[in-house]
Write a protein that binds this DNA or RNA. Sequence first.
RNA 1: GGGCGCAUGGCUCAGCUGGUUAGAGCAUCACAUUCACAUUGUGGAGGUCAUAGGUUCGAAUCCUAUUGCGCCCACCA
Length: 980
Amino acid sequence: MEIPSQYNPKETEDKWYKFWEEKNLFSAKSNPAKKPFCVVIPPPNVTGILHMGHALNNTIQDILIRYHRMKGEEALWMPGTDHAGIATQNMVEKALAKEGLKRQDLGREKLLERVWLWKEQYGSTIIHQLKKLGASSDWSRTRFTMDEEYSKAVVEVFVELYEKDLIYQGNYIINWCPRCQTALSDEEAPHREIQGNLYYLRYPLKDVSQLASESVCRLTDERAKGLTDKPANRQTGKPANYIVVATTRPETMLGDTAVAVNPKDKRYKNLIGKTLILPLVNKEIKIIADSMVDMKFGTGAVKVTPAHDPNDYALGKKHNLEFINVLHPDGRMNENALDYRDMDRFEAREVILEDLKEKGLLEKVEPHQLSAGHCYRCHTIIEPYLSKQWFVKMKPLSKPALEVVKNGRIKFYPKRWTKVYLNWMENIQDWCISRQIWWGHRLPVYYCKNCMETGNLNSKLKIKKSPDKVEIPIKPREKLEDGIIVSRTKPEKCPYCGSTDIYQDEDVLDTWFSSWLWPFATFGWPFQQSAISCQPSAEDLKLKAESRKLKADLNYFYPTSVLVTAPEIIFFWVARMIMAGLEFMKEIPFKDVYIHGTVRDSQGKKMSKSLGNIIDPLEIINDYGTDALRFSLISITTQGQDVFLSKEKFEQGRNFANKIWNASRFILMNAHLENTPLNAHLHLEVCPLDANDIVNRWILSRFYSTLEKVNKYLETYKFNEAANALYAFFWHEFCDWYLELVKPALVNSEQLTAESKKQKEQTHLIMCEVLEKFLRALHPFMPFVTEEIWQKLNESQITNRKLPASIMIQAWPHTQSQIIDKKLEKQTQTIFDVIKEIRNLRGSIELKAGQKVTISLYPHTKAKYKLFERNTDLIINLAKLEALKILVSNARPPATISAVITDIDIYLHFNGLLDITKEKDKISKKINELEKTKNSKEQRMENSEFVKKAPKEIVEKEKESILELKDSLKRLEKMLNELR
RNA sequence: GGGCGCAUGGCUCAGCUGGUUAGAGCAUCACAUUCACAUUGUGGAGGUCAUAGGUUCGAAUCCUAUUGCGCCCACCA
């Protein structure tokens, strides 16, 4: 068999991926004979391109899916993409901008056409990239959140929630992005620290006779010190005729309708209820008292702008203040801003400050760190903005969602995220779900123009539910305005007045309002409403059958098994899915939530395009191969810890793939594969537990030890541990020791005795079996290289070729705990130690390459004597010896021969020249080391508390260890003497 | 202001419920090449486990405080 000496991922990956797809190996369907295992993908943005976060996220999911599939479960990985409202629309708008067009130039319909076109063009990019990654999703089920079917679920949920009185419309302060010109939810407007200023503004009192108290004027005077501005009463010392307020957004003062102070604040007590003249606007505003005001901050007096600040909004409601909006939706000042009209908000700020300064009304400016909301899509500073939006009442939904996590029905891995989740859920706020963009699910809300105009409402009226024209009553809801119709389909005429002049709400829903249904809407929920038609058409029947199938799948796979995602998405998505699942399915959406870390660059910075620190997974795949990408990513991802990446990290994965390749190459070229059926359990027959075949028994024991660990780690989501266990086993045990040990026997073409012939056969079998089982255990991590080699093994089969076509549908190796033999492993380790020591010795005397020497061993126990005697050949081969003599321990080494010592308690003599000083140093160093350990252990034993309180086996172990140390020391010292 | 995470050899990190002579990968140094693999092999050097207390017979591991770094949440104008 011709096999190149380097693994070439490019030649294998696409080939096998195509093969898997053609054989339909990714598909899964409801199958009561098997245990279901299901993962739904966190749908990437439809216009997204694969980044390292995706690579990590999807590799983990693929490992889980492949592992469970091999374990014989019906493993479904549900794929799909998210329409990503704002993000996608922004993208298309950007493209339009290049043509010099704005969305308004096109209009809604045309823009949506463009977005769909865009989606057609780029929507499958991310899917192709996931395939490059080796993702074994059931692509036949690929869903998109704007699919017709999926959209039905969104509408259904909106209507249901509305009918349950969990959705309402209202005027509230929301996060407004002036650039995207839409409302955002709190989660979409994360706060970032920015360096700003605290501006102290003077608001004059209307009536000079209503002077501020002395304490206030003293306060203001003091604050006036050191200011550029001319302080009002500095020389005179007369009481000030103004009050000072502090603000970070001076431009909002145009919308002020009060100034608030704390009723307990002595400084302002006599001013409560007095009137101020709002500067620049020249309007009268009152001084009101509210305990919400923090006396310690600023001057203790706060300007109240009910239309532009959530706190002020609350004050405004409470004290019946006027709400004055001073901003256009695009962030420019509006007509209420008088002279500042049409200026940008930040420009207006500067001009207003100038004008105030001129009038002597700007007292001072202090640098001030503040945190402001930023749009999570375009990073513009958001504006708290009063507008009419739609909200979901979250409290009722959160209750059961808290419960299922508290009682452990849903578990977070790592555990600490539980607290984060609970904390958010306990303090949950209503969710603003309407967005003023065009790309998304339009609200199923309709208005009757006639009713809206005439205010005609009769709460006893009914709403029509087309197309089957079944009338269902709606509850009267006094807080809603006249003429609102919430319906699954567009009503033909107004149920209130019969008018046909009906139009739909312009807004679309928050993207997450569709994503939160993902775990069940992807299965087709709420399913085709059975048509009332008496004579169903063929099309109807087909739909019905399809619907039944989907229903069965939902039944079978829901609740899904585990959700794999990143921490930043817990609130956006995870929490909301739990609420939606419980509300609409009456069941949790998944049992486990595995939260992996964020991928960062080697400086710890989040990877982002703007920082230019992206490592492109596709580039890594191109340079190192997919398996290398996957393996390296996984092996450095400790549970829940952020991942720090640099390109070099992928070399480890590439090297590992190559190592596997070459070890397999060696086996394929040297072993007799025709008689070694894959997927069989031969080891017990050919290598019984009592066989005098330490090497084969050892590698089997080590393999099954490793397998047990891998199982344990995979079950507990410790992917890096599992990957590293496989790595260490294969490289450092299977290749470094096992293959080296068996190599001479395999390659040796000399005439063999019957026994050694048998031994050789045995080795062939074990070697292949271990390799093949190892490949299977590694397959979820490195699907391509394992498949490639497995297929080569399969090809060389003669006896048993009825195997399933791919390693990915082989059974996961069964554990064989009876084969694990710790005592044997220890014995083998002793042999390895001797070999290492002899190699060391060769190094220390600077033997020429290939120069052969003879070594004498003086083991001081019978067991070891036997062990070495039986494995003389191994030692000779690996230590490259001329000959090895095993002598009884009390046979005194000839004084003329130089001696070296090992870590273990074995005397070792050597027939060459040694640098005596060097050897003596080495021995002395060792003696010191052991002496130190011995002393500390002895001290421990002298401590009566230790002997009394520590567990017996620990004490015993210590005792034994001291004896051994003493023994070793004795021999070392003797040797040191003999070297003189 | 609250919460969380992280500080272990030059770098990046493992070390799970306390008992090791504290491990790995990379980097480094020495040696090795007609050998499955230089994307290799063998060996060496390199650590008072951030600091200070405490619990314990015993602490890198548990507790408390401190320092530094990072992240998340919150309506201080």
